[in-house]
Amino acid sequence: MHWYTGNTVYDTVLTLAFAFAAFVIVGSFFAQSSYGRFSSTNLGFNLNPKLGWWLMEIPATVVFLVVYLTGPNRFEPTSLVLAAIWLLHYANRGWFFPLAIRQVPGKRSTFNISVIVMGMLVTSMHGYLNGALFSQDYFGQYGTEWLTDPRFLVGLVVYLCGFGLLISSESIVRNLRDKNNPGAAEYRIPFGGGFRFVTSPAYLGELIAWSGFALLTWALPGVVILLITAGNLIPRAFATHQWYREKFTDYPTDRKALVPYLV
C-alpha cells in the first residue's frame, strides 16, 4: 500500500490510523472512554490516573524520537522546528500533566486498562507518522522556506493559542484541589479563564491546537490526530456539560459546553 508517500510501511500505518479515527468517531456515539468522571469498573483492571496518563502518552515521545532520529533530515532547520513543536506538546501531555495530577489518595478506579491500550496505539501511530514525516520529508516541502509559508505561520499561531488555552484550563482545574489535602473535594465548579465561557475549555484548546498543527504541517497525519481528538473529545465535552449541570444546582446557566456562545 503506497497511496500517499510511496513508502509502503508509512502509508499502511496512515491507513490504519484513519480506520482507527473512524472507529473512535462511531464508538463515541455509544459510550465515553472509561477514565475520569466517566470511569467504569465493568471493563476490567484500572490504574491510578498518574500512571494511566503516563503510560498512554509516553509512546508519543519515545516512538517519535526513535523514528525521527533515524531520518536523513533530522538536523535540518525546519525539521527541528517541527520536532520542537511536537516535543513541547508532549512534554506537557506525557510528562508534566500526569505528574501534576492531584488525585484523591488511594483512588485507583479512574483509568481503565482498555483506555490505556487504545491510547498507546494512537500515540504510537501518531509518533511514528510525524517522526518519519519530519525527518524523511517525503514530499520535499520542509525546506527553510516553509518557516515563512503562510500555512505554517497561521497554523503556528492557531496552535499556540490552543496550547495556551489548554495549559491555562488544566491549571485552573488542578488548583481546585488543595495539594495539601487532595481528598477534601473531588469535584468543584471551575471559574476563570476559558471556564467563563465553556465547560470544557481544555478540550477546546486541544482541538484548536491540533487544528493548528494540521495546518502548520500541511499533511494528513495532522488530519488523523485532529479526527481522533474530535471523535473522543466533542461527545465527551457534551457529556461533561450535562454531568456538571446535574451535579451542581448552581452551575452557571450561560456557560456553553464547548464553543463560546454557541454550543
Rank of each mutant, 00 (worst) to 15 (best):
239 A>M: 15
109 S>H: 04
169 S>Y: 09
228 I>Y: 12
242 Q>I: 05
77 P>M: 00
19 A>V: 14
5 T>R: 03
253 T>R: 05
111 F>G: 15
75 F>W: 11
82 L>K: 01
125 M>A: 01
149 D>R: 10
240 T>Y: 00
235 P>L: 15
55 L>E: 02
98 P>M: 00
89 H>Y: 03
196 R>M: 11
260 P>R: 08
35 Y>H: 15
171 S>E: 14
8 T>L: 13
17 A>Y: 05
261 Y>P: 04
146 W>V: 12
185 A>R: 00
24 V>A: 03
74 R>D: 08
86 W>A: 06
148 T>M: 02
171 S>A: 11
219 A>K: 01
105 P>R: 12
179 K>A: 12
212 G>P: 11
221 P>E: 09
72 P>M: 11
44 G>H: 11
57 E>I: 14
263 V>I: 13
187 Y>T: 06
170 E>I: 06
228 I>L: 09
242 Q>M: 06
132 A>S: 08
87 L>M: 15
33 S>T: 00
90 Y>K: 04
60 A>F: 02
82 L>W: 08
236 R>L: 03
61 T>Q: 01
156 L>N: 07
4 Y>C: 02
28 S>C: 01
240 T>I: 00
1 M>N: 04
107 K>T: 02
84 A>L: 04
60 A>G: 05
225 I>D: 06
229 T>A: 15
192 G>T: 12
180 N>T: 10
109 S>E: 13
109 S>F: 07
188 R>H: 00
240 T>M: 03
80 L>N: 04
115 V>T: 13
63 V>G: 09
19 A>H: 06
103 Q>N: 10
70 T>C: 13
90 Y>V: 00
210 W>I: 06
187 Y>F: 08
24 V>L: 12
117 V>A: 07
37 R>G: 03
75 F>L: 15
55 L>T: 03
250 D>G: 00
195 F>M: 14
64 F>R: 10
93 R>Y: 02
124 S>M: 14
34 S>Y: 14
128 Y>F: 15
108 R>N: 14
35 Y>L: 13
46 N>T: 07
189 I>F: 05
22 A>N: 09
149 D>N: 13
198 V>M: 15
85 I>F: 12
212 G>Y: 04
263 V>F: 15
96 F>K: 07
74 R>Y: 13
163 F>S: 11
22 A>R: 02
200 S>L: 08
152 F>D: 12
211 S>N: 02
71 G>N: 12
165 L>V: 10
123 T>E: 11
152 F>K: 13
85 I>E: 07
249 T>M: 04
168 S>H: 12
233 L>E: 03
224 V>G: 13
62 V>Q: 07
189 I>A: 09
256 K>Q: 11
215 L>P: 10
28 S>R: 03
151 R>A: 04
38 F>V: 09
18 F>Y: 09
199 T>V: 02
78 T>R: 00
235 P>V: 10
56 M>Q: 15
42 N>I: 02
201 P>R: 02
90 Y>W: 06
252 P>G: 05
45 F>G: 04
183 G>N: 05
104 V>T: 01
228 I>R: 06
5 T>Y: 10
30 F>H: 00
58 I>L: 14
41 T>L: 10
124 S>K: 14
189 I>S: 04
235 P>G: 10
228 I>H: 04
29 F>Y: 09
102 R>A: 00
54 W>C: 07
86 W>Y: 08
41 T>F: 02
65 L>A: 04
28 S>P: 01
129 L>E: 14
210 W>S: 13
224 V>E: 10
1 M>T: 14
158 V>W: 10
259 V>T: 03
134 F>T: 12
226 L>C: 11
